[in-house]
Design a protein around this nucleic acid. Structure first.
Length: 292
RNA sequence: GCGUCGGUGGUAGAGUGGUCAAUUACAACAGACUGUAAAUCUGUCGCCUUCGGGCUACGAAGGUUCGAAUCCUUCCCGACGCA
């Protein structure tokens, strides 16, 4: 079975570097698994790899979407699968690299999503309702799904109602493993080191002109509201540029929010027992190569 | 030295006689995750617990009271004002 290497882990763990090194050693091509790097012009703030850092290794699924329009897991899944097929056809090894756990699972576990595309009109209407109302609506439509859903999470409730309205009920979660042998490599840093790296990286990004990037995005028509929605760097830069917070608050908030995000990533990946973990601060590339 | 205001859990900051282990926010920790996933949401957060409850706590020591973080006295510390 065709081998596909997956490099995952928390933000700032050093995944991109490792992916490039491995790609060069084994004649691979990289498929990014990052829900923000898919967008064009979200470069510094999303930590997108630069042309130079790619060292000639082809990267896929970067800059494939317009930031004004919401990208989705399903789009990612489709694009990633065809990228994998394409890479394999050319006799190379795909290397999936990124920190968006949901995207990675969509591909590696072959999650089958209900074929109900987002219904913007319906969502607009549902957003105005309270969580309790949404929950009761769902319960009427699909008592089974209501049993396990997080009754306080409006985003989840809205999607469930959306599916239930279209299909009558929410189909049972199913997976269909793709004919690939996914080898999952997890990269982690001890908490203190991670925190330190996040702080340093943030200052570097500011120096690199991250704020100008945000200003430019807004000039190009990206609304503040949408920018806030993009989270982390973009969210707090948007707040700062609107004078809703000052620079100090922006930096402080960002550090703690990025740290929280890293925690969420850790929680997500913890469930996946197929991952082999390595301490990024002690890692030698050849160790990984041997594992592969 | 005199006077005023204040000292509350990791931090900020409510509470001014019982319903207070103490609102809330932040931090911290744990978790969820079916087309927004850097999003969205949940739980724990003095100590012990057989999860019923038990114990110690609101600067310190005394006191008043059936009962005090809350009132009184003294002391310690801080800010400000007057000397």
């Amino acid at each position: 079975m065709q081998k596909v290497i997956v490099i995952l882990g928390q933000t700032a763990a050093g995944k991109s570097d490792l992916a490039v090194k491995i790609a060069k050693k084994i004649n691979g091509e990289i498929i990014s698994a990052d829900s923000r790097q898919v967008y064009k012009n979200l470069n510094i703030g999303s930590g997108k790899i630069t042309k130079k850092e790619m060292e000639g290794v082809p990267h896929h699924l970067l800059d494939v979407a317009n930031p004004k329009i919401k990208f989705t897991v399903v789009k990612y899944q489709k694009l990633a699968i065809s990228a994998m097929a394409d890479i394999v056809k050319r006799g190379k090894t795909p290397i999936i690299c990124g920190g968006t756990g949901f995207y990675i699972d969509a591909v590696t576990k072959g999650i089958i999503f209900p074929e109900v595309p987002p219904n913007i009109k319906l969502r607009k209407q549902l957003v105005t309702k309270s969580a309790i109302t949404l929950f009761l609506t769902l319960k009427k439509l699909d008592p089974q799904r209501a049993k396990t859903i997080d009754a306080k999470n409006k985003v989840r409730l809205i999607r469930a109602v959306e599916i239930a309205k279209a299909l009558g009920k929410v189909p049972k979660e199913t997976e269909a493993r793709l004919p690939f042998n996914f080898i999952k490599i997890g990269l982690y840093l001890p908490t203190a080191k991670l925190k330190n790296k996040i702080e340093k990286r943030l200052l570097t990004r500011i120096k690199m002109g991250m704020l100008n990037e945000a200003k430019k995005l807004h000039k190009q028509g990206l609304s503040w509201k949408r920018m806030e929605e993009l989270g982390l760097e973009y969210r707090f830069m948007a707040l700062y540029l609107q004078n809703k917070i000052n620079k100090k608050e922006m930096l402080e908030k960002l550090n703690s929010e990025i740290h929280k995000y890293a925690k969420r990533q850790k929680t997500w990946f913890k469930r996946d027992k197929e991952i082999t973990w390595f301490d990024a601060s002690k890692l030698k590339t050849y160790v990984i190569i041997n594992v592969l």
